[in-house]
């Protein structure tokens, strides 16, 4: 197995001893098929037990190992060392406060996520005896892409709008709101409107499109937000034409 030495420059920060974060470099012997997470795990297991970071599944499903890798938000379990230069700069996800080393505080994202009511709001509860909920493949297709979000927050780290205004609801939360709005079983669009169609919601987005570029599951939050803008604009004008219309 080919071995190649790579220098990892990792941003370190221990709130108990450090005034501010600083880079520390580790030389790591990497194997051909390693991802950056393998290299970081090598640092943790062999070179420095004090390094803190999050990870779990190692297969791009859990969404916990997001890091800035050479300035780009990526899942470190899906970032292959073979595609990288010999010096790899690793930082915690941008736009979030650093808790420690590569661990960021995601409370703000969690609040935003909850604020868009990311769950089915059915017209009425259906008793188990009344049988299954029916949805056609065409109805599923409308929103399926947006169900693939793993809440990894890479899109927040890529979004300059969120960087400059933390009130912005942000890409993943708005994409999830769109997912439920498009679901044939859901009638919660009105209930989500206050958050989604507000100045801090879709109208804060200026369509940079970075969120969709970095999404590891091709959810395309930027597209979702533009679609919501159009739907919301149509709603507005329809509201002017038919003020009594129940939304």
């Amino acid at each position: 197995m080919n071995e190649r030495h790579v220098d990892l420059e990792i941003l370190r920060y221990d709130p108990e001893t450090d005034e501010e974060p600083a880079f520390q470099t580790y030389r790591v012997p990497c194997q051909e098929d390693w991802v950056v997470l393998d290299a970081v795990n090598y640092v943790k297991d062999v070179l420095d037990r004090t390094l803190s970071y999050r990870w779990s599944c190692h297969m791009a499903v859990c969404g916990s190992c997001g890091m800035m890798i050479n300035g780009e938000p990526m899942l470190s379990c899906k970032a292959f060392v073979r595609d990288m230069p010999d010096r790899i700069r690793i930082e915690p996800l941008a736009n979030f406060p650093i808790e420690r080393d590569l661990v960021v505080v995601t409370d703000d994202f969690m609040d935003k996520l909850a604020s868009v009511k990311p769950y089915l709001i059915p017209r009425e509860e259906k008793a188990i005896e009344d049988g299954a909920h029916v949805q056609t493949p065409a109805q599923l297709k409308k929103f399926k892409q947006y169900t693939l979000c793993i809440n990894c927050t890479l899109c927040y780290a890529a979004c300059p709008q969120y960087a400059h205004d933390q009130n912005f609801t942000g890409p993943a939360a708005l994409a999830l709101a769109h997912r439920y709005n498009l679901d044939s079983q859901d009638v919660g669009r009105g209930a989500r409107e206050d958050v989604v169609a507000s100045n801090a919601g879709i109208w804060e987005c200026s369509f940079v499109g970075a969120c969709s570029d970095v999404c590891p599951h091709e959810v395309d939050p930027a597209g979702a937000i533009q679609q919501t803008k159009i739907a919301s604009t149509v709603d507005y004008f329809m509201g002017l034409l038919t003020p009594e219309r129940d939304r």
Binding site: E16, T50, R100, V103
Partner: peptide, 10 residues
Amino acid sequence: EDKSNVYNTD
């Protein structure tokens, strides 16, 4: 190795 009280994964 890690004696920190914050997010000590060690």
